[in-house]
């Protein structure tokens, strides 16, 4: 499947979630998405990532909308039920969009997404800006692990007292930033030397080819998104 197909489905799905008000329907959709996500490779890790964002959000929404602190301070809260229902709806919508996005991410690789971006009609500079941070941040994380090991060997302790940890932050970040920024000029020279952005259209070898039905699906999704956005505005 082409990497953009999942992305194309994501947009109308998010808008549809905004359009549906019935919490039970939203909950069923969310449950289906979560089951599908759990069945993917590394499903457990992805579910955990989902929960890490959505559980704190649930707590925050309950606290703010439920006005439990008001009750605690001895005030009377009316319409708590209605306020909580609105919060639940909001939470379900965010939860659905994130679950769907994670499901899409589980179906692609960084490599195929990068090639698809470079092969798309986006200007090469935009494709570069979307794709290269993914590659670079993977390198930086590996580098960070190496640096933090080296700093730990020199006595930078992540369990140190508060103020020492602030100094550790700079001690760890500085080599990473200096190393990356010193390379910026060379990276640019390497791109220039390969005639990057010298033509409006570039060729991309082994670009993921969308099937005919996928193309139709993209257009269908765009149309559906338009209709849904219109109906949301009209309401």
């Amino acid at each position: 499947m082409h990497p953009f197909t999942g992305l194309a489905l994501l947009l109308p799905l998010g808008l549809l979630a905004m359009r549906i008000d019935l919490p039970s329907l939203l909950a069923v959709a969310l449950a289906l998405l979560l089951v599908a996500l759990g069945m993917r490779p590394l499903g457990g890790a992805r579910l955990r990532q989902w929960a890490l964002v959505l559980l704190p959000l649930a707590l925050g929404l309950t606290l703010v909308h439920g006005r439990y602190l008001d009750s605690w301070l001895g005030q009377v809260v009316d319409n708590r039920q209605a306020a909580l229902l609105a919060a639940l709806r909001l939470w379900l919508r965010v939860a659905i969009v994130l679950a769907a996005a994670l499901l899409w991410l589980s179906s692609i690789t960084t490599a195929s997404l990068t090639r698809a971006l470079f092969a798309s009609r986006l200007p090469p500079g935009v494709a570069y800006l979307l794709a290269s941070p993914l590659l670079l941040s993977e390198q930086l994380k590996a580098r960070l692990a190496a640096v933090s090991e080296a700093q730990a060997a020199r006595g930078v302790d992540v369990a140190a007292p508060f103020f020492r940890r602030w100094r550790s932050l700079l001690a760890l970040a500085a080599p990473l930033v200096v190393w990356t920024l010193s390379d910026v000029g060379e990276r640019a020279a390497a791109l220039d030397a390969r005639a990057f952005r010298s033509r409006l259209r570039r060729t991309t070898l082994d670009a993921p080819q969308p099937a005919i039905w996928e193309r139709w699906l993209w257009y269908g999704c765009a149309l559906l998104a338009l209709v849904l956005a219109g109906s949301l505005l009209w309401r």
Binding site: T114, D183, R187, A190, L191, R194, F196
Partner: peptide, 24 residues
Amino acid sequence: AALTGCAFSVAAEVAFGPENLGLA
């Protein structure tokens, strides 16, 4: 310093320049 950081394989790295020229 000559690596572009946009390629996942050596073949793609070498192809990056000619791709930018829009060749067949």
